[in-house]
């Protein structure tokens, strides 16, 4: 029970990696607020699974790109649970297109959810963490941010922005007992990759030195480590969980 009574918010916490993170924190004794924006079925399923683990959880519908939603979400958690110890900025979307076909909406929506969402959620939470003199912010980035990938100018820019954001914010709050780090999952087997053809999956696996796609649980370990007391002297870092890809 490493995270007993710690208060955790996970955005995009009802599917894929975010859901795995939310469930794992709950298993470790944390009080978990799993955020979602439109995935109502995912929220119902996550609620059922959390119910089997703990009573200390909540599902919160909020659009991370919309400041009033974000502020209300954080306020609600603080009103109910007094504080927030750990915030995992996991909500993210992709809209892959080659640049010549990438319209402004494709650009804006990906930047808004991935990068602006990280900014708004961190901003909404940082005051309570400063006041506690403790906090862990963990952001999700991507190998696309480090290496680039054709068809992902919007996504890689958003994830690169998250790395820069992570490093800058870490320096602002380092003295206040708050760490800010990023986790960089490689190719992880989730709903996003499950629909891929077997040939593409084989090709992906061949590019990974460990020869397989990662599982959401592989990412969870890194997130829990960075959120733990053991990682108290680590901040502004990007931890790759990619089977040796980068």
């Amino acid at each position: 029970m490493e995270f007993k009574d710690k208060r955790v918010i996970v955005t995009g916490g009802t599917k894929g990696i975010g859901k795995a993170i939310a469930l794992s924190f709950a298993r470790e004794g944390a009080w978990v607020a799993a955020n979602y924006s439109s995935d109502n079925q995912g929220a119902i399923d996550t609620e059922s699974e959390l119910t089997l683990i703990t009573e200390k959880f909540m599902l919160i519908k909020a659009d991370v790109t919309h400041r009033p939603d974000v502020d209300e979400m954080v306020k609600h958690v603080i009103d109910q649970w007094q504080y927030v110890d750990i915030f995992v900025n996991n909500a993210g979307i992709i809209k892959d297109k080659l640049l010549i076909f990438l319209n402004e909406d494709d650009w804006d929506s990906v930047i808004d959810v991935n990068l602006k969402g990280t900014y708004l959620c961190s901003r909404a939470t940082i005051r309570t963490m400063i006041s506690q003199k403790f906090g862990r912010i963990i952001n999700m980035t991507s190998p696309s941010a480090l290496q680039g990938r054709a068809g992902q100018t919007n996504y890689s820019a958003s994830k690169g922005g998250i790395i820069s954001f992570t490093k800058s914010l870490s320096k602002e709050v380092a003295r206040l007992g708050i760490t800010v780090n990023a986790v960089c999952p490689g190719f992880i087997s989730t709903a996003m990759t499950n629909h891929l053809d077997q040939d593409i999956k084989c090709d992906l696996s061949n590019r990974i030195p460990m020869g397989r796609l990662g599982q959401p649980e592989d990412v969870v370990g890194a997130v829990l480590f960075l959120a733990s007391e053991k990682a108290g002297y680590i901040t502004g870092q990007v931890l790759a969980v990619d089977g040796g890809l980068t």
């Binding site: 005051r127 400063i130 006041s131 602002e172 709050v173 206040l176």
Partner: peptide, 12 residues
């Protein structure tokens, strides 16, 4: 950074 702490203290 001290200002950050004071801003939060004044709010509280």
């Amino acid at each position: 950074i001290d200002a950050l702490e004071l801003v939060v203290a004044i709010e509280k």
